[in-house]
Design a protein around this nucleic acid. Structure first.
Length: 484
DNA sequence: TCCCCTTTGAAGCGC
DNA sequence: GCGCTTCAAAGGGGA
């Protein structure tokens, strides 16, 4: 049973996580799934590319047919080996070995006690925090440290970026080591897109690392011309646009902590918020308070300054309320006003979003990469690719995300003890229209579990062994990737 | 402007 | 316990 944390009684972790891996014929199935998934992905992308690239590359037709047979695991293993070796080299003994291969998440043995007796952060915790939030001034000279780390890093394998959505064996492994390198989200993502719990999904120390962009980003190739694109702004690198004066203009990885100029800083509401969030303006000073929100209260000395300026966690989305209109209506109709006031109050109730699950974290991490590799921008198609890649991940690779998701849930639970997913159900949301899921015919749309089972079990080459619904379903599934 | 699409996983709910 | 539904992110597309 691939129970995380050794099944150490953590009821937050989903017990059924990755159950699919433990079916009979696990290895064969996994390999088969990897191969078939890669093939699926290639097919998917082929169709997608054919759809979107027809005008750009007329010779890309039937790419799937011309594709060489699925690569053997050997190449993948070799890639992983080289990457692991590279990871070892870059480790430099600074960090504790992660529990999972290729798991860049810095594991702190005892985060519940990140303080030294003198009250300062322990080096381990400092490292942890520095890794989590690179811009956090945990210690001085962090930039140099990161630079040193960067310099010590082995060159990453070439990462081809082009007009086609290519799949490479071991690409997921690549991703593990290039997480932040390949993820432009923390850099270019609009603040409101930064997940409140983003700190938990920052895996590496390579955010904002000044200097040369990683190969695959460096090679930001114009999909149409194949020519590397110049930075969008002549003076500012699109990926490392940080200058001392421009730092504040960027979405901070602590976007939910640091108020962005000109950005709403999650307006403070007095009601319904049990855990006012630490003020961004006192990030360093309030570290203990920040920690207090994450760790048992008795372990962190009280700090009152945050409380008054608490900035709501960005998971809290305060619905836009038309203040002006509500005020201008005052006196026109008392009952109407009362109703609208009531409604406004309800609307003002912060919306605490669900913590992201493992796949969501993975999507957040990999979306930019997939978008960069493909010319696709439609999220539905991107998500299908990501879904297939997700299944192509190894157990260890997925475990990393499950672990992160578990931590997210844990943190979320600590931040909002009384919160329930039910609170976000449309029935409880005033003014929010209920999302209606499309009525699906049997065997249509989301019902992918069966096809996946047959695909995983027999592979694409043995479709004759698939059950009827799967055989009927699969071509449709692929064809539906590109909505005409 | 709002909702749909599309993915997986977590959680809630009804039976 | 099982099955269904909703929501989380994302952004193009359609009504």
């Amino acid at each position: 049973m691939p129970q995380l944390n050794g099944g150490g009684g953590d009821d937050l972790g989903a017990n059924d996580e990755m159950i699919s891996f433990k079916d009979e014929g696990e290895q064969e199935e996994k390999i088969s799934e990897n191969l078939s998934a890669e093939r699926d992905l290639a097919d998917v992308k082929s169709s997608l590319v054919n759809e979107s690239e027809t005008n750009q590359n007329s010779s890309s037709d039937s790419e799937a047919e011309r594709r060489p047979p699925p690569r053997s695991e050997t190449f993948r293993d070799k890639t992983r080996e080289s990457l692991e070796e590279a990871a070892k080299r870059q480790d430099g003994g600074l960090f504790k070995s992660p529990p999972y291969p290729g798991y860049p998440f810095i594991m702190i043995p005892d985060l519940t006690s990140p303080y030294l007796p003198n009250g300062s952060l322990s080096p381990t915790a400092r490292t942890y925090l520095q890794m989590k939030w690179p811009l956090l001034d945990v210690n001085h000279g962090s930039l140099q440290s990161r630079q040193a780390l960067k310099d010590a890093r082995s060159p990453s394998p070439a990462h081809i970026v082009g007009p086609f959505c290519l799949e490479f064996p071991g690409q997921s492994d690549l991703s593990l080591h290039q997480f932040q390198l390949s993820n432009k989200v923390p850099v270019v993502q609009h603040p409101h897109h930064v997940h409140p719990l983003t700190p938990l999904i920052t895996y590496s120390n390579e955010h904002f690392t000044p200097g040369n962009p990683p190969p695959h980003l460096q090679g930001d190739v114009d999909p149409k011309t194949g020519i590397p694109r110049p930075p969008q702004h002549p003076d500012i690198s699109p990926y490392y646009p940080l200058s001392p004066g421009s730092v504040g203009q960027l979405p901070h990885p602590l976007g939910w902590l640091v108020p962005q100029q000109g950005q709403p800083v999650y307006p403070i509401t007095t009601g319904g918020f049990r855990h006012p969030y630490p003020t961004a303006l006192t990030v360093n000073a309030s570290m203990q308070s920040f920690l207090s929100s994450r760790f048992p209260h008795h372990m962190v000395p009280p700090h009152h300054s945050l409380h008054q300026t608490g900035i709501p966690h960005p998971a809290i989305v305060t619905p836009n309320v038309k203040q002006e209109s509500s005020h201008s209506d005052i006196g026109l109709n008392s009952s109407k006003h009362q109703d609208s006031k009531k409604e406004d109050e309800k609307k003002k109730q912060p919306h605490i979003k669900k913590p992201l699950n493992a796949f969501m974290l993975y999507m957040k991490e990999m979306r930019a990469k997939v978008v960069a590799e493909c010319t696709l921008k439609e999220s539905a198609a991107i998500n299908q690719i990501l879904g297939r890649r997700w299944h192509a991940l190894t157990r260890e690779e997925q475990a990393k995300y499950y672990e992160l998701a578990r931590k997210e849930r844990q943190l979320h639970m600590q931040l909002y003890p009384g919160w329930s997913a039910r609170d976000n159900y449309a029935g409880n949301q005033q003014g929010k229209k209920k999302k209606r899921k499309r009525d699906k015919q049997p065997g249509e749309g989301n019902d992918l579990s069966a096809p996946k089972k047959c695909r995983a079990r027999f592979g694409l080459d043995q479709q004759n062994n698939w059950c009827g619904p799967c055989r009927c379903k699969y071509p449709k599934e692929v064809s539906c990737l590109v909505r005409a």
